[in-house]
Design a binder for these strands. Structure first.
Length: 196
DNA sequence: AGTCCGATTATCT
DNA sequence: GATAATCGGACTA
C-alpha cells in the first residue's frame, strides 16, 4: 500500500482509520483529506534540493525511512503536521494528513480542543488534527503499521469509491502550487478548505 | 463568508 | 537572517 508514489497513496488513504492511544486516551478517526509530497521534481517537498534534486537533513530523515512510518514536523514554529511515509526505504516521499473525522473518543478531542463549534474547527487542518490525536515531534519516525505503536493505521473494509474523491491544488505552498495533489472526500464537513 | 494579520521557532534554497 | 506543507481572532459588510 505505501511502497509506491505519494501521488497514488494520497487518494487511496482516504477512508483509512487513524488511531492514537496516548496517555491512556484513545481516539479513532477516518482520514478525509490528504496531500502528496513527491520525490525528486517536487520543489514543495521537504526533501527537495535545487541542486542535488533531493537532500536528507535532520528534519526530513523520516521521509527516507520505511513506507508506513510517520513523519512529523513543526510548521510556522507552532503547529505539528503528520505525514505517512511512502516509496521503498531510502526514497523520500510522504502524504500529509490534512483532515480526519472522529469516530471514537469525541470526549477526548473535546478536552484537547474545547469549545469548537464545527467538525472542521475540531479536526479539519493538519495542525488541528495533530492536537486532536495528540501527535507531536516525539512520534516522528514511528511505525504506523506496527500493532504495538501508539499511533496506527488500519485499512477500511472497502475502499472509497472514486466518485467520492475530489482533487485540487495543494494548500499553503509557494512553489508548484498548481499541481492538483490535494485529495478529499467530496463535500465532507471536516475538509480544511472547500474544493472547487 | 471573506480577508487580514500576528504568533513563534526549527531549519536551512 | 529569512522563511514556513498553519491557525485563530479580529475585522469588514
Amino acid at each position: 500500500m505505501f511502497e509506491r508514489r505519494p501521488l497514488e497513496v494520497a487518494p487511496a488513504l482516504l477512508g483509512w482509520r487513524l488511531r492514537s492511544e496516548i496517555d491512556g486516551e484513545a481516539v479513532e478517526a477516518v482520514i478525509t483529506e490528504t496531500e502528496a509530497y513527491e520525490h525528486a521534481g517536487d520543489p514543495a517537498s521537504h526533501a527537495h534540493h535545487p541542486v542535488d534534486g533531493i537532500r536528507r537533513s535532520e528534519r526530513n530523515a523520516a521521509m527516507f525511512s520505511a513506507p508506513g512510518r510517520l513523519y512529523v514536523y513543526r510548521s510556522y514554529g507552532i503547529h505539528w503536521c503528520a505525514n505517512v511515509v511512502c516509496w521503498p526505504e531510502g526514497e523520500p516521499g510522504a502524504v500529509l494528513l490534512r483532515a480526519v473525522d472522529v469516530l471514537h473518543g469525541h470526549d477526548v478531542v473535546e478536552r484537547r480542543r474545547p469549545g469548537r463549534r464545527s467538525d472542521r474547527d475540531r479536526t479539519g487542518g493538519p495542525g488541528r488534527l495533530c492536537v486532536a490525536l495528540a501527535i507531536d515531534g516525539d512520534h516522528d519516525g514511528i511505525d504506523l503499521l506496527d500493532p504495538g505503536s501508539s499511533i496506527r493505521l488500519a485499512a477500511p473494509a472497502a475502499p472509497l469509491p472514486a466518485d467520492r474523491i475530489v482533487a485540487g491544488p495543494r494548500i499553503g505552498i509557494s512553489t508548484a502550487a498548481e499541481r492538483p495533489w490535494r485529495f478529499g472526500v467530496r463535500a465532507h464537513p471536516t475538509l480544511s478548505k472547500p474544493f472547487r
